[in-house]
Design a protein around this nucleic acid. Structure first.
Lengths: 363, 363
DNA sequence: CGCTGGCACTCGTTCTTCCGGAGTGCCAAG
DNA sequence: CTTGGCACTCCGGAAGAACGAGTGCCAGCG
């Protein structure tokens, strides 16, 4: 909770020798290189990495002994950690954080991948399908667990409201949003006729079409009053049901996919895989996680304990907002072990988010 | 597929010495008791069960040596199996089959559980919600993986079709079924007006409301022809889209829950948990599994290899049809390790199926 | 004829011990 | 500040031994 998880890609200029800033004296350039190398190697091999292996795999131009000194310093500052004496080092959450913030750049996808994404998403037939495909796609590309939040109701706008008389005093109400979401409710009303419903429908639509759902309750406050006594009861009931539907807590839904990928990391989570799966099924957890995820940039990375859930301490979340022309209507992301390929995952997530937004714009 | 899964409690009179029937000579009464005891113990302890433990836990009135003879016979006939010499016995798929068919009775839920089920399901607000709640409920009661199939489109009937003009030549088509399902499509049409749409809507509804979806294509075959040339193109397009929607293969969907429960059986699936999860995410597999599941009685049990999928060889499926007043519109069930509590699970599944049907009737 | 107790045997499980090797921290010298 | 050397730690796997649960078979009993 301490530091806010922003993610600045920070590719770019090598930055002068940088005469150590007072507040950050130790972290000179090589130290950072070492940290980066450790993260990369650990992610790749999944084993604690030692000084010797480091100098071999990366040409750091110094001896293992020197690296050991740097490692000791990095450990001192909490960026890496030693499972036990005489073992290599493993990055800590803090280490990954630094890596993500300053040492890595988002890896763009190949153009082949891009067009594959687009082709795959474009075939979607309705919103459910878009979400389902997106989940599948994300899970497949990143080979991790994918999470996609349905476009939030309250941030969507009303496209149309339909009233259907299914019995003399029973009306089905269908609400369609500009993000393609469809909500339906059955309302028990006073007896109504097709004619009165037609008028109600017309007025209702005139009143709220094009409005954000958040505005709906205000505009419907005294909807009933403008009608003849005959219809007033029906109008009131319907307005109430509609208002209920738009504030409905259940409005927020997520779809999950690729949970099988968790098992690829059984070594990462010796016993934590159960709790992780449980946390994932608990939609509230995911929603809160995604909900908080509204950083300055689109991409958010939440590492290990930063998630705020003990069960997810061994996982990281890479998420991004997505939506029509830029303003995010919902979030989507990927959950994997803290030891994951951040640059690649970030690239995939942001690419998918962009394309989903584009597909939504078309629909 | 061979024997239909009835469940004959078979308590009752000791049955004369019973001069062994020719077609089934060996399986005398005690042998079956032994098998039942083995299944029960194995399910409870999850460890191969030996002759000594058996006589201790169940009062069979004979000595371990006798039991050993029976066990040898049972093994000979393929009902149980020995992981290795000098280990206890474990039921085979065939053993479970016999157990389910002849040795166990469906365990009814307590009345407290029943009312809890009903209370939980009753709060559902729409079809999605019913399905979601059902999955949660099943997973929770059985502590296993729950699967619920959405009411099949083709077996449902049309309640209403709505047409919404969202742009001069763009119509949103919403199809609502009597099972509460809502399908929507966007159609690109020739330019249309509100008026022409109103007429189209009226005729469309007159034509197909109340019809099974399977009948829809036939009834819409020459829908376009009855209109003025102006509207004909629009009518044709809409009819085509609608027909497409009802035959849509994607119509069949399932919802999954409680996958975290799989991890409780990690010992059962040492390395198979990954493949199982994958198979579960593959909706096609689940659909086929549920689809085949239409026995004479409502309850179907599919044990181990009977599923027909190698990945699911270590799991069993307990499923039941559900639907409004008796005729099944879809299936729902539970997937667990072959060594599961069949009587309890069967009781839970059939109870939930019954209640879901009731809730659907009300909506 | 079926049941029973006894007995030798099998074989997985667990515990202990042992060793190799990777990796460290420290130190003295360049 | 860097480097090579060195003693030390400690994990992880291999090898072996003791254990014990469970079996199959057999001879005797009712």
């Amino acid at each position: 909770m301490a530091d806010d998880p922003r993610s600045a890609p920070r590719q770019g200029e090598p930055a002068q020798p940088e005469p150590r800033r007072p507040e950050d004296p130790r972290l000179d350039r090589r130290r950072l290189d070492v940290l980066r190398a450790i993260v990369q190697d650990y992610v790749a091999t999944q084993e604690p990495v030692g000084s010797k292996a480091l100098v071999e795999r990366h040409n750091l131009g110094v001896s293992p002994a020197t690296i050991r000194n740097d490692m000791a310093a990095l450990e001192e500052e909490g960026y890496i950690h030693q499972p036990h004496t005489s073992a290599g080092r493993v990055p800590t959450d803090k280490g990954y954080r630094l890596f993500v913030d300053r040492l890595a750049s988002v890896k763009p996808l190949s153009s082949a991948e891009r067009s594959a994404i687009y082709a795959f998403l474009e075939g979607a037939v309705d919103l459910d399908d878009v979400v389902a495909r997106t989940v599948r796609l994300l899970a497949q590309i990143t080979r991790q667990v994918a999470v996609v939040q349905y476009p939030s109701l309250s941030r969507s706008a009303v496209r149309h409201v339909e009233l259907v008389l299914i019995a003399p005093s029973r009306v089905m109400l269908v609400l369609i949003t500009d993000t393609g979401r469809v909500e339906q409710r059955i309302a028990e009303t006073a007896p109504a006729t097709e004619q009165s419903l037609a008028e109600l429908r017309a007025r209702l639509n005139a009143l709220i079409v094009g409005r954000r759902l958040a505005e709906v309750p205000a505009r419907l406050a005294d909807f009933g009053e403008q009608f003849q006594p005959d219809d007033r009861a029906v109008a009131r009931t319907l307005a109430a049901v509609l208002m209920d539907a738009v504030v409905e807590q259940r409005e927020e839904r997520v779809m999950l996919g690729g949970t099988a990928n968790l098992t690829r990391f059984r070594q990462d989570f010796p016993d934590t895989i159960g709790p992780v799966l449980e946390a994932l099924e608990e939609q509230m957890v995911l929603l809160k996680l995604l909900g908080e995820t509204t950083g300055p940039s689109m991409l958010t990375v939440r590492i290990g304990h930063e998630t705020g859930y003990e069960e997810l301490a061994s996982t990281s979340l890479v998420a991004s907002g997505y939506g029509r022309d830029g303003d995010a209507v919902a979030q989507l992301g990927v959950l994997g072990p803290t030891r994951m390929d951040y640059p690649g995952t970030m690239g995939a997530v942001s690419a998918v988010a962009r394309y989903v937004g584009r597909v939504l714009d078309e629909a």
